[in-house]
C-alpha cells in the first residue's frame, strides 16, 4: 500500500438538517499508518461527520472516498475497507459478546471463532465470550465495540470518542492498541475526541473542528507551541501593563489572575526577574496546561491566518 495516497478522504463534505447547516465544506485526507485526531468541542459536528463517512447519513454536498472508492457510487465496496464505532458502541444486550461479534463477522465474511476469540483477547476482554453484553460496563462495551470494528482487519478505523467511559488504564490499553495498529499494521485511524491531551498522546495530526468547520489542521505539537503562564499578584492590571510593555507579550486577566502567553524565547524566569526588580510580590506563579478551549479561542480569533498556514496533505 502506498502511504502517500490517502486511504480516507473527505471532499467538501456538507450536511444540512432542516434549515441548520451542521457541517460545511469539510476537507481532509487520512493516510495509511496515520492516526488522525478529529478534535472539537461537544456539538461541533464530529459525529455528524463520522455518520457521513460511514454512510449512515447522506451528505447534502461533497463526497467521501475510502480506498479511492467513492462512497456514493459503491457503498458496500467502500464500507468493506472500514471498521467503526459511531457514538456509543451500542451492541445487542440480549446476546453474548461472542454472539455479538459473530453478528458482525458474518456480514464481513469472517466467521472463524478462534479469530474472533483472539480479538476479544486483544482488546482485553478474555473470558467474557459467553457473557451477555447487557451486563457489560461502558468501558467493556467500548472494548467490545473496538473488537467489532477490527473484524476483518480493515484498512481504516473510524472511532467516535472511543475513550469515553474508560478508566485511565483502559485509556492506555486502547491507546497502545491503536498505536500498534497504525505503526505495525499500517492501519489508518480516524479518531474523534473533545479532549486535547488525549489527542496529544496519540495523534500524528489533528484537524480541529468548530461549528461544523475545520479551523486548523496540523501536528499536535505545532498547535501547542505557545505556553501559558498564570500569575497571581496584588495589582494585576498594573502588573500586566508592565509585563506587556517590557516583553511585548499578549495577556489577559481571568478571575483576578494574569494569563500570559509566552513567546519569543521568554521564560518564566524572565518574568520573575522583572517583577522582583520592581518589588512586586508574587503570590502564585505556574505554567498552565492549555485547555482545548484556550486553543479554540485563539484559533477562532486568528481563523484566517491559521487557514493560510495550513498546507494540504502535510504529513
Amino acid at each position: 500500500m502506498n502511504n502517500n495516497i490517502p486511504i480516507l478522504e473527505a471532499r467538501n463534505l456538507s450536511k444540512t438538517l432542516g434549515s441548520k447547516t451542521i457541517v460545511s465544506n469539510l476537507c481532509f485526507k487520512v493516510y495509511p499508518g496515520e492516526i488522525y485526531g478529529f478534535l472539537g468541542p461537544n456539538g461541533a459536528g464530529k459525529t455528524t461527520t463520522i455518520r457521513m463517512l460511514t454512510s449512515l447519513i447522506f451528505p447534502t454536498m461533497g463526497d467521501v472516498y475510502i480506498n479511492a472508492i467513492k462512497l456514493k457510487e459503491n457503498r458496500e465496496g467502500a464500507l468493506k475497507n472500514i471498521g467503526c464505532i459511531v457514538e456509543n458502541p451500542e451492541l445487542y444486550k440480549y446476546l453474548t459478546a461472542m454472539e455479538n461479534l459473530k453478528q458482525f463477522a458474518r456480514l464481513k465474511g469472517q466467521t472463524n471463532e478462534d479469530y474472533l476469540y483472539n480479538l476479544l483477547v486483544k482488546v482485553g476482554l478474555p473470558n467474557t465470550a459467553d457473557q451477555k453484553v447487557g451486563t457489560f460496563s461502558l468501558g467493556m462495551r467500548q472494548r467490545l465495540g473496538l473488537a467489532q470494528a477490527l473484524i476483518g482487519n480493515p484498512k481504516v478505523l473510524i472511532l467516535d470518542e472511543p475513550m469515553n467511559g474508560l478508566d485511565p488504564q483502559g485509556m492506555k490499553d486502547i491507546r497502545d492498541i491503536l498505536i500498534s495498529l497504525a505503526k505495525e499494521d499500517n492501519m489508518a485511524v480516524f479518531i474523534s475526541s473533545h479532549l486535547l491531551h488525549e489527542m496529544q498522546m496519540i495523534a500524528d495530526r489533528v484537524g480541529i473542528i468548530n461549528n461544523g468547520k475545520i479551523i486548523a489542521e496540523d501536528q499536535v505539537s505545532a498547535l501547542l507551541s505557545d505556553k501559558t503562564l498564570s500569575l497571581k499578584v496584588d495589582e494585576p492590571e498594573r502588573t500586566l501593563a508592565l509585563i506587556v510593555n517590557s516583553f511585548n507579550l499578549n495577556g489577559t486577566i481571568k478571575n483576578g489572575e494574569i494569563q500570559l502567553e509566552l513567546r519569543n524565547g521568554i521564560e518564566m524566569a524572565d518574568i520573575i526577574r522583572l517583577l522582583a526588580s520592581r518589588n512586586i510580590d508574587i503570590q502564585d506563579i505556574r505554567m498552565v496546561d492549555q485547555e482545548l478551549e484556550d486553543i479554540f479561542f485563539r484559533l477562532v480569533d486568528n481563523e484566517t491566518s491559521y487557514l493560510d498556514k495550513r498546507v494540504e496533505g502535510v504529513r
Binding site: 454512510s55 464505532i85 459511531v86 457514538e87 451500542e90 451492541l91 458482525f104 456480514l107
Partner: peptide
C-alpha cells in the same frame, strides 16, 4: 431506538 442500527448499517451489506 437502542442505537444498534448504527453499527449494523455500517457493515458492507445493502
Amino acid at each position: 431506538g437502542e442505537g444498534t442500527i448504527k453499527l449494523l448499517m455500517t457493515t458492507p451489506v445493502s
